[in-house]
Amino acid sequence: MNIREASQSDIPDIIKVLKASLGEGSSEKTEKVWRYKHIDNPFGESLILVAEEKNEIIGVRAFMRWNWQKGDKVYSAFRAVDTATHPDHQGKGIFKKLTLNALAMGKERGDHFVFNTPNAQSKPGYLKMGWKEISKLRIHVIPVNPFYWKKEKEIMQNFSNDVPNEFLDLDKWNEDLIGSDKVFTPKGESYLNWRYVNNPMQSYFIKSNSEYFIAGYVKIHKNFKEFRISELLFTKDASRKTIKKIIMNWAKKFGVQFVSLNVPLEGTIFKRSLSGGLGPVLTFKLIDENLDQNMFLKFKSWEYSLGDLELF
């Protein structure tokens, strides 16, 4: 078995392995989506390794590049995301081999850590390879008046992502977080455009001006609908009442049963909500052994949006 770093010419064969391993239904698997996630990312191209036998790709492991910042220090991180082993080659330890090789390569290149939110099936494997479990994501849930609930599920047809005419002062937003001593993802217009406006995988409803940026979407479950706020950024001068009205108008329009969001640094928008460790578990693996990992293992140190950590 040969383990090597992938090139862009490998993308068609990588897509074939993803489809064979994961099927067509879990998420869209196309070259367009792969390039969006792993090449067009404003944080940089992903670290992608493949396993080969007889010059045929039989496994793939992708670490999406990401930045986190604490104070003035920016950390080069990876999100452990797309991974697949061809069904004909399972049981050969391909996932572990690819992952450990990727970690070694990241260490050699000066990267700092890996993070992800694995599901219950994959989490034990990560923990065996040295990942640390930090905490379940804290999420606030706001019930919607049953009067507005709707049964229709096909509510996103022919919808294109909103394109904002104006962004808030992101330099100021980043400066405020630098002063907070929190671990956060530094954000600019290029990031928000990539993550939400130009995302080919998910259509977002977006409202933005000089005081706030809000991006959310309808998530359909088996027996209910949720309006998830993936990104909520706002200045100290922003009207909480206006932001709340925008979100609840979306919730009523699409007839969801509840709204979900994280709690921003500047405080809650909704005074009445259910909250707690309702999200997936955030896990972490140090690459740079010279770093003090304790500052990352304290969940209260993280200032995150759901869009920073949810799978996409």
Rank of each mutant, 00 (worst) to 15 (best):
F78E: 10
F78S: 15
F78Y: 14
F78A: 15
R79S: 15
A80V: 11
A80G: 14
A80T: 09
A80C: 11
V81D: 09
V81S: 13
V81I: 15
V81N: 09
D82Q: 07
T83A: 12
T83L: 07
T83P: 07
T83K: 06
T83N: 08
A84W: 03
A84P: 01
A84Y: 04
T85I: 10
T85F: 06
T85P: 05
H86Q: 03
H86Y: 06
H86A: 06
H86G: 03
H86R: 02
P87A: 02
P87C: 04
P87F: 01
P87K: 03
P87I: 02
P87T: 02
D88P: 03
D88A: 13
D88F: 10
D88M: 11
D88T: 09
H89R: 10
H89V: 07
H89P: 03
Q90Y: 06
Q90K: 14
G91K: 01
K92G: 04
K92R: 11
K92M: 10
G93C: 03
G93T: 01
I94K: 03
I94N: 02
I94A: 03
F95C: 02
K96E: 13
K96T: 15
K97D: 10
K97Q: 14
K97V: 07
K97T: 11
L98K: 03
L98D: 05
L98E: 03
L98R: 05
L98F: 06
L98I: 06
L100P: 04
L100S: 05
N101C: 13
N101G: 13
N101Y: 01
N101R: 11
A102V: 07
A102R: 00
A102N: 09
L103P: 02
L103T: 11
L103K: 09
A104G: 08
M105H: 10
M105F: 10
M105L: 14
M105A: 15
G106V: 07
G106N: 04
G106P: 01
K107V: 12
K107Q: 11
K107L: 09
K107N: 10
E108Y: 01
E108C: 08
E108P: 00
R109L: 13
R109Y: 00
G110W: 06
G110S: 09
G110K: 06
G110L: 08
D111E: 14
D111Q: 11
D111K: 08
D111H: 13
H112F: 07
H112R: 07
H112T: 10
H112L: 08
F113W: 06
F113H: 07
F113P: 03
V114P: 00
V114S: 00
V114T: 06
